[in-house]
């Protein structure tokens, strides 16, 4: 309940009009959205029960490691309702395969569709999406961990919430199935980060400072 209550409202894209080149404009719009999503995610993470009980060092490590996974849960969640094969980055930023391809995001499109289809088939609920986002952060396998006991408690609390929720729906296998989707989520996030790093080098897309900082931790 707490995760749902604090789940941030979806952001809208601010369409970039600084260039006539549509693929560049798409990338700039996407990066701006990503930066704002990241800010909101950090604010949200602080409200996840147990997060503030972690040391500041661990809070930073978890976010630096798991931010893209958490954000992609949102993209996959928003995209699962679409009839077409669009990725819904925001209500007003829906990209199909051709648009992604022309923006240099073909590999990202493919990876994100794979993830989206997986969640689409499971009919992910809002509760599950919120839980997965929190679990992705908590489970980001940072090394070294400053305070392992607090991290373990944080993870256990989220796990327990997920089990309770699925038990209330009398869905015996769903919690396990969701957790089994985490490797694909990580793989997809890795692709997304690689794509961003590549775009930054190739096109010299100006990235916001926070986004650069988070990418820097991944590079």
């Amino acid at each position: 309940s707490h995760l749902l209550l604090t789940d941030p409202a979806p952001l809208a894209a601010n369409h970039d009009d600084s260039t006539n080149e549509s693929s560049l404009s798409t990338l700039l719009t996407l990066c701006d959205l990503l930066n704002r999503e990241l800010l909101v995610l950090i604010g949200w993470a602080k409200q996840i029960p147990g997060f503030s009980g972690l040391s500041l060092v661990d809070q930073m490590s978890l976010l630096q490691s798991g931010w893209m996974e958490a954000l992609l849960v949102g993209v996959a969640w928003r995209s699962q309702g679409t009839l077409g094969e669009e990725l819904v980055f925001a209500g007003n930023l829906r990209l199909d395969e051709a648009q992604c391809r022309s923006a240099g995001l073909a590999d990202l499109y493919e990876a994100l569709r794979h993830l989206t289809i997986k969640y689409q088939m499971m009919r992910l609920s809002p509760e599950e999406a919120a839980a997965l986002k929190a679990v992705a952060l908590a489970n980001s396998d940072v090394d070294p961990v400053d305070c392992p006991d607090s991290l373990q408690r944080f993870q256990d609390g989220l796990h327990e919430a997920l089990l309770d929720y699925e038990a209330s729906r009398r869905e015996q296998h769903r919690a396990g199935r969701l957790l089994m989707s985490l490797p694909l989520l990580r793989q997809t996030a890795h692709r997304a980060v690689q794509t961003l790093l590549r775009l930054q080098h190739q096109h010299r897309i100006p990235l916001h400072k926070l986004l650069l900082e988070m990418l820097d931790a991944k590079a």
Partner: peptide
């Protein structure tokens, strides 16, 4: 963690 000033600040802000 010196390099990650913005994240550090965001986490330390209470709101």
């Amino acid at each position: 963690k010196e390099k990650h000033k913005i994240l550090h600040q965001l986490l330390q802000n209470s709101t």
